[in-house]
Design a protein around this nucleic acid. Structure first.
Lengths: 139, 139
DNA sequence: CGGTATCCACGGCGATACTG
DNA sequence: CAGTATCGCCGTGGATACCG
């Protein structure tokens, strides 16, 4: 019974408000919006996956994730650190060494992501097929 | 035990491949990437929420979602229709009437989204607090 | 009512080069 | 090793106006 279980953003929020009140995704402070903005980007989910087994250094992380420019990886890591998803540990030595590790919060985010991933793997075939049909129908 | 449960994109995919093989998010055909690209946008999740209780017409949908330009709503709906998440039914009458309704696939996507929403509502406080700390630390 | 057409601002992301 | 600096593309999405 999915529709009854849909909490938060999925339930008609507050019909007395013209905008639907809180819980609306165009509200930058909406919890779901915050999370979606974080995992919706190109690299965050991959970083979480790469760090799931344990801490990694910058270059290891880069190699594990694959194909990401250093600037962009830095941006991603800073944002995740800022949001408490991972910790950045600098070792005072030469050559420099910086470890990135998931926090409890970061690890716990893996749960919902795994659910999403499971759904994706199960249903992506249907989606892709629908796309093909749609394109074919235009012709 | 979350880390053990992390399937798909979250597990180190294929270490024999330089890019990590399948299951990588920078691969446009990666299931998780496909889904993330869909729900990561600004309006799709809200549309799913709005349609969870039943079909709506274009204008009703627009009012329910709130603050979305017609062009953008059309774009969103077309993309969702294309991917098989909803159906678009045109009634041949004047004035025109067009109904939008979730498909089974669209409804089922509500499950993972609800999980994400639950996580978001539980942990957004921690995230926001981390942000404040981070900003405060810069000063 | 249910859209299109047009224009445009913004931010994410990438390539390349350089540095403490 | 672990980044920063700079440049620039381009896709999303918003404002406004118009249409069958």
């Amino acid at each position: 019974m999915v529709t009854k279980k849909l909490g938060g953003i999925l339930s008609p929020p507050d019909l007395s408000s013209p905008t639907g009140g809180r819980g609306n995704a165009f509200d930058p402070d909406c919890p779901t919006r915050v999370v979606l903005d974080r995992i919706g980007d190109k690299w965050t989910v991959l970083v979480i996956g790469a760090l799931a087994r344990g801490p990694l250094r910058f270059t290891e992380l880069r190699a594990r994730v694959g194909g990401v420019a250093p600037k962009v990886l830095t941006q991603t890591l800073r944002a995740m650190e800022r949001d408490g998803l991972l910790t950045r540990t600098v070792f005072a030595q030469v050559p420099p060494r910086v470890d990135y590790a998931l926090t409890e919060l970061g690890v716990s985010l893996g749960g919902p992501i795994a659910v999403l991933t499971d759904w994706a793997e199960t249903h992506v075939g249907t989606i892709l097929a629908a796309r093909d049909d749609f394109v074919a129908q235009e012709a």
